[in-house]
């Protein structure tokens, strides 16, 4: 059996909009074990749990550049358009975004996010 020393988690990331929680092992723009990739925002990152490859990372979320809320990257909580915006802030300032984004947010209409626990909320 392989024994991989995994990077110990720094803490638990918790999205302030939905209840998603996950342990993160790095915060910043330069995920460990990857040379040629930079992140364009200060991100909470964990090792990709779905592959045994150590170098693979998964961005969990970051702070909204308007309200500083910690939000996950899920499409029902936030979007990235050169910066991270939580969906409530996007909705408030919808006219500041190009039409494509506006249409996209329209499509995501409904409650900002169903609380985790309700079956059937597809991703």
């Amino acid at each position: 059996m392989e024994c991989e020393a995994e990077r110990p988690p720094l803490g638990v990331f918790k999205c302030q909009l939905c209840a998603l929680t996950a342990p993160y092992s790095y915060v910043g723009q330069k995920p460990p074990d990857t040379q040629s990739i930079v992140l364009l925002e200060e991100s909470y990152v964990m090792k990709d749990p779905f592959t045994p490859d150590k170098g693979r990372f998964l961005v969990l979320g970051s702070r909204c550049s308007l309200c500083s809320r910690l939000v996950c990257v899920g499409p029902e909580c936030s979007l990235f358009y050169s910066k991270r915006f939580c969906l409530p802030c996007v909705r408030e300032n919808l006219d500041a975004f190009p039409r494509e984004i506006q249409q996209d947010v329209e499509r995501r209409k409904g409650p900002s996010k169903k609380p985790v626990g309700q079956p059937g909320s597809g991703t």
């Binding site: 040379q35 930079v38 364009l40 925002e41 961005v59 358009y81 500041a96 190009p98």
Partner: peptide
């Protein structure tokens, strides 16, 4: 679209391109 008064929104790219929606970059 007028230039936005909130600084965080002012710097948004004026021309939409799907590549602005990607939060990472390859060096």
């Amino acid at each position: 679209r007028p230039k936005h008064s909130i600084p965080a929104l002012a710097g948004l790219p004026r021309t939409y391109d799907p590549c602005h929606r990607i939060n990472l970059s390859v060096l």
